[in-house]
Design a protein around this nucleic acid. Structure first.
Length: 144
DNA sequence: AGCCATGCACCG
DNA sequence: CGGTGCATGGCT
């Protein structure tokens, strides 16, 4: 099973007043890009819907988008991935800036599992005996 | 590269 | 009419 963690930013949880309701995916990481559905860079703003279940069994459909107008519009500047439609879930969990968002999936499975764990716990511990955490980009970790 | 912000459309 | 998401621009 592959599993990725992201520390939520203020903008991610909506506490900045932003109303774009979603989180940012680092681009340029092959493991993460392979883990998520494939989005064709040759398409303009391609998106894919992924099915996520929470630990308590609720299901959410999330939109995984690649904003790439940099390559498709004359003066486009966007080149980033995002996952939206998360506001409902994050609010229901009372997620705040600094908390950890987890997303995992069994190899070959179709459904993803997601979870948010409060900031205080997971961070400090696990120096060298817990699971291996590899920093792959700002805010993101991959767990083996 | 990543996070912050927003005008407008849509929908209840 | 208020909330949410889309697509995009801006700032660090």
């Amino acid at each position: 099973m592959k599993k990725f963690l992201k520390t939520l930013s203020a903008n991610d949880v909506g506490s900045t007043g932003a109303h774009m309701g979603g989180i940012l995916i680092p681009k340029g990481d092959d493991e993460l890009l392979a883990f998520l559905p494939h989005l064709d860079p040759n398409e303009y703003n391609p998106d894919e819907w992924i099915l996520c279940v929470t630990p308590d069994g609720r299901e959410f459909r999330l939109r995984y988008v690649y904003y790439n107008n940099r390559f498709h519009k004359p003066n486009g500047t966007r080149n980033e991935y995002r996952i939206t439609h998360l506001t409902k879930y994050l609010k229901s969990e009372g997620a705040k800036e600094g908390d950890i968002f987890e997303i995992s999936k069994e190899d070959g499975a179709t459904r993803y599992l997601m979870n948010v764990v409060p900031a205080t716990k997971d961070e400090e511990e696990s120096a060298d005996n817990g699971p291996v955490r590899i920093k792959i980009s700002a805010g993101w970790r991959r767990v083996h």
